[in-house]
Design a protein around this nucleic acid. Structure first.
Lengths: 234, 234
DNA sequence: ACTCCGTATCTACGATGTAGACTTTACTCG
DNA sequence: CGAGTAAAGTCTACATCGTAGATACGGAGT
């Protein structure tokens, strides 16, 4: 397992690998946003010619997919958890935390699949779907019902994350709420309600908001499905 | 109202305006996607120098914001509807239809707000928020509660739309389900559940799925809030 | 007739993704 | 030990993009 590659004197030319490349890419995106991640920049950061990157990602789009994958791989799911609702809750909070830790990656997570058909996506991004299906089937759902639950759940979860990130703050230093959110720019006659809500907007507690939504949704789904199951046989 | 500008012989130099520019931009995006919308292309399409566009949008980002706005303006909301749940349902279906009609714009709707603080967004994109808040307050909610309802509702709605668009089909001509979704590429051992669900995935009925989710969410929200109201006085 | 100003155009620059030819490196086999 | 090979890395070059800045145009007001 010890790689005798790092020979040339003092790690002068450490060997580079897909993992290293993607990790550095994520680092750049986290620090400076998606636009900062150019091939030239990434090459420089790694001390290599930009063109060398094409050994590890077919093109820039593939590189971005790799970054998505890298983040989603940090989400771990336990498909054997007997308490499916609790497991879904944990997954939701974990994903939320991931999103908060890598906000600049979220547009990728949300946007890339829109231009890539299901079957052609990076496997890492499909794994959560497969695992959640497993979880639900193990919990006794018909596969097709599991799919419906998954959709409602994952849709809500992504929606929440987008919502929460969207409300993020302009200038945390500013202590006048209206200003902190930039709301002072809005014409007061057209947006009375929004402006009045400045304080409420400022103290958004994403975790509990997510949790309450999940409670509603999950128990609702459970009820709906047991009703269906009772009606159609068994 | 009759503009005497269209003088030079036969509409040779029709006057150009923000509306015309944005409409053509949307047309390009709808037909060929976001990447096809370059300043040069849009200029060409309008028979004008690309640089003239900068009179009507400060830069490309602002142009994209304009396109978002143009689409969202087509969503009309009736804040005085006495039946708030029914109104929210209508809005949801309208937005869904808009998204299906302009799928290439959806990434904009979802992504641009992430990099623009609330107060600095194009007013057109904030109007739905204001109007839905109005609707909820008119229906008897405390403003702060209305905000919570809005968040859960809009989050779910956006999530659903993303979900639905993501599942769209590779090649509708192909009549083998596995192939139509590109699922044949997935390793069978790692993704058994997903592959088995190919038929179910293929006959996704977005409208009813959205509707069922809304039913659950809205009645859940209503229940939760009336409980809260009862507890905290009156 | 002359100025002025909103509008449109022209030219030019720096940055980006990436194709294609070339060079370097590390390792294998006779 | 030396020739050969395949992979990894580099160099050069190009088309395309957003847009800054200078310039031209054309009708309204004096």
């Amino acid at each position: 397992m010890a790689s005798p590659k790092t020979v040339t004197t003092a790690g002068r030319k450490a060997p580079l690998s897909r993992e290293v490349v993607l990790a550095k890419a994520l680092e750049i995106v986290d620090a400076e946003g998606l636009d900062a991640l150019t091939m030239r920049r990434l090459g420089m950061e790694l001390g290599r010619d930009p063109m060398s990157l094409y050994r590890y990602a077919e093109n820039r789009a593939a590189l971005l997919d790799g970054v998505s994958e890298l983040v989603l791989n940090q989400l771990n799911i336990h498909p054997e958890d007997p308490d499916w609702k609790e497991q879904l809750r944990k997954i939701a909070h974990n994903l939320r935390m991931l999103a908060l830790r890598h906000p600049n990656v979220v547009p990728l997570l949300v946007t890339r699949p829109l231009s890539t058909p299901l079957g052609l996506r990076p496997l890492g991004t499909l794994r959560p779907l497969e695992q959640i299906l497993s979880l639900l089937v193990a919990a006794g759902f018909e596969p097709a019902d599991g799919l419906h639950v998954y959709r409602a759940y994952y849709g809500f979860l992504y929606g929440h994350i987008l919502n929460e990130l969207q409300e993020y703050v302009v200038d945390p230093e500013e202590n006048e709420v209206l200003l902190r959110l930039g709301l002072h720019r809005l014409p007061a006659k057209e947006f009375p309600k929004l402006r009045a809500l400045a304080p409420a907007l400022a103290e958004y507690d994403g975790a509990t908001e997510l949790d309450q939504g999940l409670t509603i949704l999950l128990s609702g789904l459970e009820a709906q499905l047991s009703r269906q199951a009772a009606r159609s046989g068994r």
